[in-house]
Design a protein around this nucleic acid. Structure first.
Lengths: 243, 243
DNA sequence: GGGCACTTGTGAAGCCATGCACAAAGTTGC
DNA sequence: GCAACTTTGTGCATGGCTTCACAAGTGCCC
C-alpha cells in the first residue's frame, strides 16, 4: 500500500528516451487536467479505465500514451494520482514557469490577458504590447500596456520565451518576424493569417472562425443537405454560366 | 480564355459524392481564406502551387483535398479563383448564414461577441446569455445579455443552430446538456472541461492553455532539456522518496 | 494541325495513429 | 505459498492521411 522507495530505473532513463509522438504530446495537457481534477477530489489512485473516462479518451490509447513517458503504473492497481501528475508536469515542462508576452491588446488580447487558466498552469503573462500608442500606459489585467516599439526590449529584459500574437491579420507576419529576430522560438498565433517562420521555431495557431466553419460543414450535412443544395445549385448555375 | 459554359457533369454529382475526409474539411476554411485574399488582390487564376503557398500547405495535399470536392481546376492553367471560392463556400455551407448563441459573457465571451471574424464569414451572433443576473440587460457588442433561464427560449425563438460555450469549466456540462435538449447539434466549447454529448451532436473544443502547454513542451526540449532535468531530478527525487 | 509546355487529378507507397487483445506483473485472500 | 483476480504495458493489425510521381488533359505557338 505505502509506496516503497521508487526503484532507480525510474530516474535513470531520460524522461522520454525515444521522442514522444506529437499526437501524444497534444493529449498530455488533457491528462494533466484530469489528474488535477482527481487530485482535488482527494482520489489517490486511479486505473487507466477511470482516468481515460475522466479525460474523455480510450483507455488503450491512454496507456500507450503514458508508456511513452515511462512505466509509471502498477499492474493490478493503477496509477498514483499525485505521482503521475508530477511526471506529466515535468515532461511538459511546467515545473518552471514561462514568461509570456501578448501582442495586440484588442478584444481578444484583453481576454487572454485576463484569462485565469494561464497563470494557474505556470504561464506568467509578463508583458502586454500594442501598436496603438493611445493604448500605451493603459492598465490591463494589472499590467501597463507597452508600445510595440519596445517589443524587442521587453522580450530581452523580461526573459520572455513565448509570444502570443493577437494582432489583426495584416500585422501578424511582421510581428512574428520581429519576435523571432529577438530570439523567441515559440509562438501562439490567433491572427487569421498564414505566417512563415524559420526552421526551429514552433508555431501553433488557433483560428476561431475556422472552428465554426467546420461545425457549419457538419451541420449542413445533417440538415437534409441534398434538399438545400438543389435550391442552391440554381443560384450557382446562374453564376457559373456567367451571371 | 473565356470559360465556356461549365459541363453538366459539374452540377450533376452531389458536391461530395463520397464523404470528404475530416482532415480535408479542417483545411477548407484555410483555402477559403487564401482564395479570399487572392480575390481581394484581383488575382483571377491560380495554380495549385501558388494557392498552396498562400495557404501554407503542400501542393499535392491541396490538389488531393480539392479533388474530393470535385474536378474544379483546368489542367495546364490552374483554378479560377472566384469559381473555386464559391465552390468551397458552398461545400462548407456558408452560403446561408448561421445564428450563434454565446453562453458565458466573461472576458472570453466578451471578446468572442466582439470578434469581427465571425460576422464576415456568415456567422451571426444572435444572442448572448449569462448565468449572472447582474449582467442581464447589459449591452455587449450591440446585444443585450439575456439571463440563462431564457436559454431554451432564445434558441427556439431565434432559430439558433450553433452554441458557443465560454462558461467556467464547472458549468460547461450542464450548459451543453441544456442546449442539446433544446435541439442544438453543434457546439464549440472553450471551457477547459471534458464534456459528453450524445451521438449525432458535433462538439469541437478549443483549450487556450493546452496550446501553450504544447509549446512549453517543445521549448523545454530545445533548451538543453537534459541539463535542466538533471537539476529537476534532484527535486523529484526528494519528493519521490517521500519528502 | 501538330508538337511542346504546363498543370491537374490520382494510383501507389509509406508513415503515423488507433484500438484490440493478451501476456506479464502485481495484489488479495486463504 | 499458492491460486484467483486485477490492471498495466505492448505486439500487431487496421485504417487514415500524406507525399511522391506520373499519366492525362489543356492551352499556346508555330
Amino acid at each position: 500500500m505505502a509506496r516503497p522507495t521508487r526503484p532507480l530505473a525510474q530516474l535513470a532513463p531520460a524522461p522520454s528516451p525515444r521522442g514522444v509522438p506529437e499526437a501524444t504530446v497534444a493529449r498530455l495537457p488533457l491528462y494533466l487536467r484530469a489528474l488535477t481534477s482527481l487530485s482535488d477530489r482527494g482520489v489517490a489512485t486511479v486505473s487507466s479505465d477511470e482516468l481515460a473516462e475522466t479525460a474523455g479518451v480510450n483507455s488503450a490509447k491512454l496507456r500507450k500514451d503514458l508508456s511513452y513517458l515511462g512505466s509509471y503504473g502498477t499492474r493490478g492497481v493503477g496509477y498514483e494520482v499525485e505521482f503521475l501528475r508530477h511526471q506529466i508536469t515535468r515532461e511538459i515542462g511546467l515545473t518552471q514557469d514561462w514568461a509570456v508576452v501578448i501582442i495586440g491588446i484588442g478584444n481578444l488580447g484583453h481576454a487572454l490577458a485576463n484569462y485565469g487558466g494561464f497563470a494557474s498552469r505556470g504561464f506568467r503573462i509578463a508583458a502586454l504590447v500594442d501598436a496603438d500608442e493611445r493604448r500605451s500606459g493603459e492598465e490591463v489585467a494589472g499590467l501597463k500596456v507597452r508600445h510595440s516599439d519596445e517589443l524587442e526590449d521587453v522580450i530581452e529584459t523580461l526573459n520572455i520565451s513565448i509570444a502570443v500574437v493577437a494582432t489583426p491579420a495584416h500585422a501578424a507576419q511582421a510581428v512574428c518576424d520581429r519576435v523571432v529576430a529577438a530570439g523567441i522560438t515559440s509562438i501562439l498565433n490567433f491572427a487569421p493569417a498564414v505566417v512563415q517562420v524559420p526552421e526551429g521555431v514552433e508555431l501553433r495557431k488557433v483560428d476561431l472562425s475556422t472552428e465554426l466553419q467546420i461545425l457549419a460543414y457538419h451541420e449542413q450535412r445533417k440538415n437534409g443537405a441534398a434538399l438545400a443544395l438543389t435550391a442552391e445549385q440554381a443560384v450557382e448555375l446562374a453564376k457559373a454560366v456567367r451571371g
